[in-house]
Simulated assay, not measured.
Amino acid sequence: MQRDAFENFNPEDFLQLAKELENNLANLEVNESSIYRTIFGRIYYAIFLYVREWLCENTEYKSNPQGEHKRMPNFIRSKGPFNNVLNNEMCSDIKTLKKLRHQSDYYLHIPDEGTEEYNQWIFEDTLFAFCLADKIINSFKNL
């Protein structure tokens, strides 16, 4: 892998990539499902990386790959930089984006109606995910 590929990276670049993918959907020769799944993944990782780095720089949060996708939102819920209501909201929003990414990465089909998995499925579109991501990143930027 080229060393340059790991230099000069900002997590918000993933968000920009997701937006460009959606804006150029008609010009891509890949199945739409693959593109939307990739968009949800990049949206989640944009906020995950952005928030993780912000927390490491501004709080006592220590990054550790072991279970970090669960630990980080829980840290925000209990020790986040906002008031209790907003800490809980940020935690919930991050978990929602994680769930959308998880659905995109691990399920080939929407689960059958009436199943527990179906009842827990998040039926939201990319506009919803982009709005959540912008809200999360802007909330941390404005501190």
Rank of each mutant, 00 (worst) to 15 (best):
T59L: 05
I136G: 01
N27S: 11
L127I: 13
D134M: 10
L25T: 08
F140P: 03
R77Q: 12
H109G: 08
Q103M: 09
P111H: 12
H109Y: 15
P11W: 01
Q2T: 13
E124L: 13
D134I: 11
L49E: 03
P73E: 03
N58V: 03
V51K: 00
N88V: 05
F6K: 11
I39N: 01
L15R: 01
R3M: 14
I110L: 14
S139A: 14
N10A: 07
E32T: 13
S34K: 11
T59P: 00
N24V: 04
Y107G: 04
E113C: 14
F6A: 12
S104E: 07
E89W: 05
Q2D: 15
E89M: 10
E53I: 01
K99L: 08
I76V: 15
Q2C: 12
F14H: 04
F75A: 00
F130N: 02
Y107V: 06
R71T: 08
L132V: 12
K141V: 02
C91N: 13
N27Y: 09
H69R: 03
E57D: 13
N87P: 05
R71Y: 05
M90R: 01
E124A: 14
K135D: 13
F130S: 03
N27R: 11
N84K: 14
I110K: 15
Y50E: 04
E113H: 14
T38C: 10
S63R: 05
I47D: 01
Q66Y: 09
I122N: 11
Y61W: 07
Q66P: 00
K70R: 09
P73S: 05
L21N: 07
S33R: 14
R42T: 06
L49T: 02
Y50T: 01
F123H: 10
Y118S: 08
N23P: 02
Y36D: 07
N8D: 14
E29C: 06
E60C: 04
I94Y: 00
A26Q: 11
I110V: 15
S92E: 15
M90V: 12
N88H: 09
L28V: 10
S104N: 08
I94D: 01
N87Y: 09
R3C: 09
T126F: 05
I76M: 03
L97P: 00
V30T: 11
I35C: 06
W121Y: 14
P111Q: 12
M72G: 00
N88K: 10
E89N: 09
T96P: 00
P65Q: 08
F40Y: 12
F48I: 01
G41E: 06
H109N: 15
G67E: 04
L143W: 07
D93K: 12
K70C: 02
I122H: 12
G41Y: 02
H102E: 04
Q66M: 07
Y118I: 09
L108Q: 10
T38K: 04
A129R: 00
A5V: 12
D125F: 06
P11T: 04
